[in-house]
Design a binder for these strands. Structure first.
Lengths: 221, 221
DNA sequence: GTCTATATCGTGATAGAC
DNA sequence: GTCTATCACGATATAGAC
């Protein structure tokens, strides 16, 4: 995995509450509830009490693990980005022509959006908050990291796009960045409208991801 | 304009502050400032004082025209949707094959996003707030209207998509709704990343709109 | 590690002068 | 029609018991 090093370093470091590289269960529970709340009600629309209530606890529990509401939001965002990065880098590293890689990457992106709607909806929300509520200098650092990773994420697609143009599997375009932003927009938008159905099978999800990716890739080949 | 009647009725009715079908200047000023604030800081992140400060006034002025912060947000949203609807219906009513109409509609959509970033970023934000902060019954009515209009907007594209499939200018797809959501997502996403440059000419904007639309339409033809 | 207070403050909304 | 108070309330964050 060529790009693992790029993002692994910034994952999982909430006040040191981790063991063997994984977040402890208590933290995951909190993040899950927070993701749902933020997704349904927005950052500022969610109170810590809301998250606590959903957790079946009180704020004491949350403030034991997270310094502030902003830190909590950032951590959910970070986790969402990590899952996207993992999925897309894996798809990217499996070889093939530029076009084949691109198709797989977009599929992976779409599938991850569907399988982690709550987290990814927070990531999409986070795009809005440019520097909002980054009060402490420490938070600014984290915010900058998150923005960097989003940029790196986009660059993965740009890079493979160019590979594809080099090997002739992807069409020449007026503006590569614009083309990539279009593709990523189409997929990111899924966080807005996609909600899993009760009876939805993994096969159906996969089929949707392939369909969405196919339409986008067709546009650039 | 076949669809004018669909949305004209819900435009411009802020406490009756309108003359000859247009909003009075005072209201437009407030909406402009509010749009900028909401775009930069989000709905809950924006205080009425923020809007007032930007306006060079105090809240008294705002509360004279709008009952509540929520009403203000809704009105910005409504204005943004109106501009989108106007542009897209005009593009749609100019005739041609399904594919040609679709291309023009997406171009118009994209161009409107660029020319009204603040308003349209609020529209995009508004998609998140499903029923958030719709406290009074009157607000619920307005929110429902806004959601209806968003749905109608999407249906315009679905409809022309089918026209195109009927006349053979648009490819058959597994799921029309999915294909349209992809296109709209790609264009809506512009509200996130696009910010006009100081020296950007209308021609450059138009060229970008055509490029974005072209890539999307190529995917479905 | 989780709870129950509680301090503290920002913000939405109103009342009333001008 | 716009301003200057001012109220009322909810939410973040903390302190300290258990």
């Amino acid at each position: 995995m060529a790009n693992e090093g790029i993002h692994r370093e910034w994952a999982s470091r909430i006040r040191g509450h981790e063991e063997s590289g994984h977040l402890v269960e208590s933290v995951v529970e909190i993040l899950d509830c927070a993701a749902l709340c933020f997704t349904e009600m927005g950052f500022q629309g969610t109170s810590i009490d809301d998250v606590a209530r959903r957790l079946g606890a009180t704020k004491g529990r949350i403030y034991h693990y997270f310094r502030s509401k902003t830190d909590l939001f950032f951590e959910v965002h970070r986790e969402g980005m990590t899952r996207l990065m993992d999925a897309v880098t894996a798809a990217m590293d499996a070889g093939g022509t530029g076009r084949e890689k691109l198709q797989r990457m977009v599929e992976a992106h779409a599938l991850t959006m569907m399988q982690n709607v709550a987290y990814e909806a927070v990531v999409v929300q986070g795009v809005h908050l440019h520097r909002l509520s980054a009060t402490t200098p420490e938070q600014r650092v984290i915010l900058n990291e998150l923005m960097d990773v989003r940029h790196q994420f986009e660059q993965l697609f740009v890079q493979v796009f160019h590979e594809g143009q080099a090997d002739g599997s992807v069409r020449e375009t007026a503006d590569t960045s614009l083309a990539v932003k279009g593709i990523l927009g189409a997929v990111n938008w899924m966080a807005i409208w996609y909600r899993p159905r009760a009876d939805e099978s993994p096969e159906t999800q996969k089929a949707m991801a392939v369909e969405v990716a196919g339409l986008q890739i067709k546009g650039v080949t």
